[in-house]
Amino acid sequence: MDENALINDAQHGDLEAFNRLVLAYQDLVYTQAYRIMGEQATAEDATQEAFINAYRNLSHYRGGSFRAWLMRIVTNACYDELRRQRRRPSVPLEPVDDYGEEIESPRWDIDPSDLPEDEAVRKELRSAIQTCLNRLPPEFRTVVVLVDVQGMDYTEAAQAAGAPLGTVKSRLARARLRLQECLRGFWELLPPSYRLQGEN
């Protein structure tokens, strides 16, 4: 069944049709939530909240990119969660990886000799990028994740971020510049093959 039919059925109260949409988009939505939130537990909460809000507000969907509409809902859920965190700050006791599993040996404690070189470097690079993403203001983070991680074009990203096209363009450039400065020291630690890959 195509997406529009599922959306139409869900708009008429068919929860089963909506759950099929959930299964189709949950990785995308969770990735967005995780890249914005930077940790699994809150990303899961934001994802669940986003789908509940999406179902309740499905009558407001007027066509267009369903993906962008969902991205906007999950982005707003993340902003709400970030505001709650700011009111009640908490520090996780144990670090977790991208998949929510507790990291027994965090990045700063990794011995590269324990892992194959490529895997160790890739993991370290991902951690570094996520750390630099977390340092960005949420608005910049959202745009750069939408465009560079989710692969949206500017128009779709503007729709998902709820911002004008010019604002998206500007935020994206500034976010990339900040990430570049954040990652600059890290490039020197990468093996030459990765540096060349980046330049290619």
């Binding site: 995780y34 669940q48 789908f51 991680v149 570049q180 980046g198």
Partner: peptide, 22 residues
């Protein structure tokens, strides 16, 4: 700038740790 962009684009899409069906 291109290198930074490429690094971001090479980030893997995460798999949802569980189903979020309602």
């Amino acid at each position: 700038l291109g290198r930074t962009r490429l690094a971001l684009r090479n980030l893997p899409r995460l798999r949802a740790p569980r189903n979020f069906t309602l």
